[in-house]
Design a protein around this nucleic acid. Structure first.
Length: 377
DNA sequence: GCTAGCCTTTCCACCACAAACTGAA
DNA sequence: ACTTCAGTTTGTGGTGGAAAGGCTA
């Protein structure tokens, strides 16, 4: 069963990103998750070789396959007497953009992966224009965990984020990766006291999907980005694509029913910081279902409308939670301050005399001289 | 639970005028 | 096609007032 990359749709996916609930090929994983500081924090692991849908948690050395909890149970559980003696090892999660060598450190079986064995992986990774010095590596040793990561928050913060995801555990020391998975899974000797693996889509998905962000308070997370580009990975004049993707469309299910294109929808959600702004935007997108909904609910703000949209969406809960998190973090970091297009006009207005805030003709009596040290009224 | 009254917060029009823009000659 | 010029439009910030929201009795 081969599953194509959710991003490029061409290569076979081998990585599963929990935050995006997406399956990616190695190349797209690296490209997508090197885009900005937030995306680097996404916890990823191998994709299950059997179902190609769930994140793998164990690697069966006998069969050379990576398995999710379900498939591992089906293949190595009590019911599978023959294969229950297979030696399996835990598959750790990772953050950032590791190199092939670092992958090998995280996953000793990395070079055995079919997608890697037949290709020059290190060269392939090296061809990607990623600044290695600017990415975080969650597999750093604990003593190095407080190193400042250029372009991102401290690793302590990354760890804090993942702690809040209830995914982090007592790592074996080789990795600070959020997935603990340190229990001895060999020969089916699963300790009953072993913390359950909170993998989306697995038997413990209920635990995961309800608690994954429960303790995460964005306010507690260091999001002191130096600049816009650092956060979003694009410059101001490239922001269009941030909201013209399908991320928001799917929540409002408007694509099929609205005459408004996805750009408009994206802007409605992404740009509007208040119901008032949404109201004003309706003028430019009168057919938008979302806008209409806002107008019919004047007491609600954009956030509540967004939440309502999520509740009505048909997405899996984990995907919605993830999307909510991304939306909130984006929204939190965005600026709605007035943008000066013409500095010369601003300088002119700053120096203009006023009466009760209004400009007055030159030579007329005025009560506010901006050039004076103190106001004249 | 509903209403009235008060207080706080948010939003927006107003103003003059130089710069930017537009279209005709 | 290019330049010049006149007319029109845009954008800039502090203030006051209206509107909206929150809270209490």
């Amino acid at each position: 069963m081969s599953h194509l990359c959710d991003f490029c749709g061409e290569q076979r996916s081998i990585i599963y990103c929990r935050s995006d609930a997406a399956s990616l090929c190695l190349s797209c994983d690296r490209n997508v998750h090197s885009a900005n500081a937030l995306s680097r924090r996404h916890s990823r692991t191998l994709l299950c070789d059997r179902c190609s849908e769930q994140p793998a948690v164990v690697r069966c050395a006998e069969e050379s396959v990576s398995l999710c909890l379900d498939c591992d149970w089906n293949g190595h559980g009590a019911a599978a007497a023959v294969s229950s003696g297979h030696k399996r090892e835990t598959i750790n999660c990772y953050l950032g953009c590791p190199s092939a060598a670092e992958f090998s450190r995280i996953w000793p079986f990395f070079q055995e992966l079919p997608e890697i064995a037949g290709s020059d992986c290190e060269q392939g990774l090296g061809l990607m224009t990623i600044d290695e010095s600017s990415v975080s590596n969650c597999w750093a040793s604990p003593e190095n965990s407080t190193l400042d990561v250029p372009g991102a928050g401290k690793l302590e913060d990354l760890e804090a984020v993942d702690k809040s995801n209830a995914l982090i555990g007592s790592s074996s020391g080789s990795a600070i990766c959020p997935m603990s998975c340190t229990a001895d899974l060999t020969a089916g000797a699963v300790d009953s006291t072993t913390p359950k693996l909170p993998c989306p889509g697995t038997k413990d998905f209920e635990f995961c999907k309800d608690d994954i962000y429960e303790d995460l308070n964005v306010d507690d997370v260091d999001l002191t980005f130096q600049n816009y580009e650092e956060l979003f990975g694009v410059s101001h004049n490239q922001t269009g694509h941030l909201f013209d993707d399908d991320e928001m469309d799917i929540f409002f299910d408007t694509r099929a029913t609205s005459a408004c294109n996805s750009n408009c929808q994206g802007e409605l959600v992404g740009e509007a910081s208040s119901a008032g702004q949404v109201k004003s935007m309706q003028a430019t997108c009168s057919n938008a279902v979302f806008a209409g909904s806002v107008m019919s609910n004047p007491g609600k703000n954009a956030d509540s409308m967004f939440a309502a949209g999520l509740e009505n969406s048909s997405l899996p809960r984990a995907s919605r939670d993830s999307a909510v998190m991304r939306y909130k973090e984006k929204k939190k970091a965005r600026m709605f301050e007035k943008k000066i297009r013409y500095a010369s006009r601003k300088a002119m207005a700053d120096g203009r005399r006023r009466v009760k805030g209004r400009f007055v003709k030159a030579g007329e009596a005025y009560d506010y001289d901006p050039l004076a040290q103190t106001r004249s009224f």
